[in-house]
Amino acid sequence: MHSTETEELVEVVLPGKVEPEGLRIRRGAVPAPGPGQVVIRMEATGVSFAEQQMRRGKYFDQPPFPFVPGYDLVGTVAATGEGVTPALTGTRVAAMVKIGGWASHVVVDAADAVPVPDGVDADRAETMVVNGITAWQMLHRTARVRAGQTVLVLGANGGVGSVLVQLARATGARVIGTASARHHQVLRDRGVTPVDHHTENIAARVRELAPGGVDAVFDHVGGPGIVDSWRLLAPGGTLVAYGTASTRDDEGSKQLPVLKLLARVWLWNALPNRRRARFYNIWAGRRNEARFRARLRADLTQVFEALRRGDITAQVAARLPLTEAAEALRLAESGTVAGKVVLHA
């Protein structure tokens, strides 16, 4: 086992429902890997919508406070445990962990570490882990979008949305995307028809652009607007709901908005119609561990290859030290940046 004894663990702790300034920095000994595990020396970890919800106590299945947030990370293998080939040491890998990524060193099962191809740096790879897997699986596994189809992406400039529109265009689909006006030129440059969700009636504008309806809608907003997303579908179309961003600042139960959405999806699918609704959860299927891991590895590998080929581009909004996580979180929540805010050790 490669040694990390001379290094120090630095991690960010979310102590409770706090403003970003309430995050704490904790230092200690670097953990040792157990059997089948590796220690990843973090090079880049991201600030996603999940962490924004977690600090409000609003993420659907977050653990009790206090805990170390951080949904995903990219880094190099610093130590290997029993049963893991020592040849992995020094390899750049990516991992999706849900919590624990905001740390200088992270222990993961070796089976969850996905190699990052040569030519893809840590920051760019980081923007594609949870966002890229989510976009790829929703597009290709859930909606099964094909060339020539028309799709609507809400929040087309967001972390998942920006990857989704690029993957959809690479597939040969026509893409309509909602975003603020300041992001429209970037969307046009990517071959996307933009709709301003602040000044335009989204449903009316999409009906103008696609009178027969769209083949897929990707909706992270949830709330009452999900009804419009359903009604915009063409016969045979698929609504993919994957969030409840509209309830971000609401008080009350963190489960209730998701349960309401799930109930609506169930009801729509129970009705006799030619459309379908799906609630996408990146962790679905985890009970079959081997299948889940194989699918995740295959899909993330496809995303990294698309990034390496130039089919998609990574947007790094800002890069800050791990110890400035509070500033990074506030920046990500400000809505003023395009792309993903990345933390580094």
Rank of each mutant, 00 (worst) to 15 (best):
G101E: 02
N131E: 11
R92A: 12
Q149D: 14
A94D: 00
S104Q: 03
R141W: 13
L154E: 05
A87R: 09
S104D: 04
G90S: 11
N157G: 15
A113P: 00
T80S: 14
G155T: 03
D121I: 00
E126M: 14
G161N: 06
L139A: 13
I99Y: 07
I133H: 09
A125M: 08
R124P: 01
V153F: 05
G132D: 09
L73E: 07
D121A: 02
T134D: 08
V93S: 00
G159L: 10
G83M: 01
V68K: 09
S162C: 08
A79H: 05
L88Q: 11
Y71T: 15
A110Y: 01
A87L: 09
L73D: 11
V106W: 03
R141G: 03
I133W: 09
R92M: 13
D72Y: 01
H105Y: 14
G70Y: 15
G101I: 01
R144E: 15
A78E: 13
D123G: 02
G159V: 06
V106K: 01
V153I: 07
T91V: 13
Y71L: 08
V114Q: 02
T142V: 15
V145M: 13
S104C: 03
A135H: 10
P117I: 00
P117G: 03
M96G: 04
N157F: 10
E82I: 01
V130D: 02
V145K: 11
M128K: 03
V93G: 00
R146H: 15
V108R: 00
W102T: 05
N157S: 15
T76H: 11
D123W: 04
L152P: 02
I99G: 02
R141V: 10
V106P: 09
D118E: 15
V84Y: 05
H140S: 13
T76C: 08
V108F: 00
Y71C: 10
A125S: 07
A143S: 11
V68G: 08
A143C: 11
A87M: 08
G155S: 04
L73N: 07
V77I: 15
V114N: 01
W102D: 06
A87N: 06
G83L: 01
G158S: 13
A113V: 00
G101V: 00
H105C: 05
G159Q: 12
T89P: 03
V93T: 00
N157M: 13
M138E: 14
G100W: 06
T85Q: 07
A156P: 02
P117A: 00
R141P: 02
T127V: 14
M96R: 01
A135D: 10
V74R: 02
T80M: 07
L88V: 05
V153G: 04
W136V: 02
L154G: 01
R141Q: 13
D121Q: 04
N131V: 03
V68N: 12
V116P: 06
A94V: 00
V84C: 04
V151D: 09
T142C: 14
V68F: 07
H140V: 06
T80Q: 08
V116M: 07
V151F: 02
G70P: 12
I99Q: 10
Y71W: 14
T142A: 14
L88R: 06
I99E: 08
E126N: 12
V160Y: 05
W136Y: 15
V77G: 08
G148Y: 10
A143F: 12
R144C: 10
D121T: 01
V120F: 04
N131A: 08
A147M: 12
